[in-house]
Amino acid sequence: MLHTSAESAAERVYAEVKERILTNEIAGGELISEGEIASKCSVSRTPVREAFLRLETEGWMRLYPKRGALVVPIGDREKRDVVDARRLLEGHAVRSVTSRPAAVAELAERLRDNLAAHRRADATDVAEFSRLDAAFHQLIAAAGDNPLLADFYTTLGERHRRMTIASVHRDAGVAARILADHLDLLGAIEAADADRFDHLLAGHLAGVHDLPGEPA
């Protein structure tokens, strides 16, 4: 029973700290301590240590004995890798969808529902905004009718969310750009124009995530 309780505490700390990293509440480059997190989560240091080890294994932080844990910042290489993967997967999905008129109509309807929810969302709720942004793109990836690729795309979701939140914090105008770009992407899908979708997606991702050397 005690073992199960300890596991539950470590899992809770892991989830809470990871969410704070994803939502930029704990910013990249920040050094945090076991004691600080133990106090905030009302637990002993043992589950915090276990959670930190797991987060280090997943690449979210680096541990420094007697100093604390450094939250790994989002680097240009990571941004490029995530964006490259998203362009490949979403572009492939749209090319598959455009050959099936019924699938185009179904995807367009779901994307319109997402955009409506996006417009209704509280503009100051960055976490919800980023969730809806990720959902928009996940709908596109899932429509490609390839479960393996859709599942792989889902694994990018956490990095996608973190990058979007960081971009919105960096520039308040990014949120409006995302909504405008999503409407354009929807238009390309409705027109069954996969080449235009690829072009728009490249500009959208480069602009939102401020990729060096890429056209915004």
Score class of each variant (00 low, 15 high):
170 R>S: 10
104 V>T: 11
191 A>Y: 06
92 H>V: 12
123 A>W: 09
101 P>I: 09
109 E>R: 15
164 T>A: 09
97 V>Q: 01
105 A>L: 06
92 H>A: 14
178 I>T: 13
93 A>R: 07
113 D>C: 07
201 L>C: 09
97 V>D: 00
153 Y>F: 14
155 T>W: 15
154 T>C: 05
172 A>F: 02
143 A>R: 02
181 D>H: 11
128 E>Y: 15
143 A>G: 01
112 R>Y: 02
206 A>N: 11
141 A>R: 01
107 L>R: 07
139 L>M: 14
165 I>M: 06
168 V>K: 03
175 A>F: 07
99 S>E: 15
181 D>F: 07
119 R>P: 02
179 L>I: 14
177 R>C: 10
161 R>G: 01
199 H>G: 05
141 A>C: 02
97 V>R: 04
194 A>Q: 05
171 D>A: 05
193 D>F: 07
131 R>W: 12
154 T>S: 08
170 R>W: 02
114 N>A: 10
144 G>K: 02
146 N>Y: 05
102 A>E: 15
191 A>E: 05
182 H>R: 11
155 T>S: 12
143 A>Y: 01
101 P>V: 10
170 R>P: 00
156 L>F: 07
185 L>D: 02
203 G>D: 12
106 E>G: 05
191 A>N: 05
139 L>Q: 15
149 L>Y: 13
186 L>I: 04
98 T>Q: 13
172 A>H: 09
202 A>V: 04
175 A>Y: 09
95 R>N: 06
155 T>K: 09
96 S>V: 11
187 G>V: 02
123 A>L: 12
136 F>C: 00
202 A>G: 08
118 H>Q: 13
191 A>K: 07
147 P>K: 04
182 H>S: 12
143 A>Q: 01
151 D>P: 01
154 T>A: 13
152 F>E: 09
126 V>S: 07
138 Q>R: 14
112 R>N: 10
158 E>V: 09
165 I>D: 05
181 D>M: 01
138 Q>M: 11
139 L>S: 13
124 T>Y: 14
162 R>N: 01
154 T>E: 15
98 T>F: 14
143 A>V: 00
135 A>N: 13
95 R>D: 06
110 R>A: 11
190 E>L: 01
176 A>T: 12
193 D>L: 03
185 L>T: 06
181 D>C: 03
179 L>Q: 14
134 A>P: 03
197 F>D: 03
104 V>G: 04
114 N>R: 10
193 D>V: 06
132 L>K: 04
166 A>F: 05
92 H>N: 12
111 L>W: 00
138 Q>F: 11
101 P>D: 13
211 L>A: 07
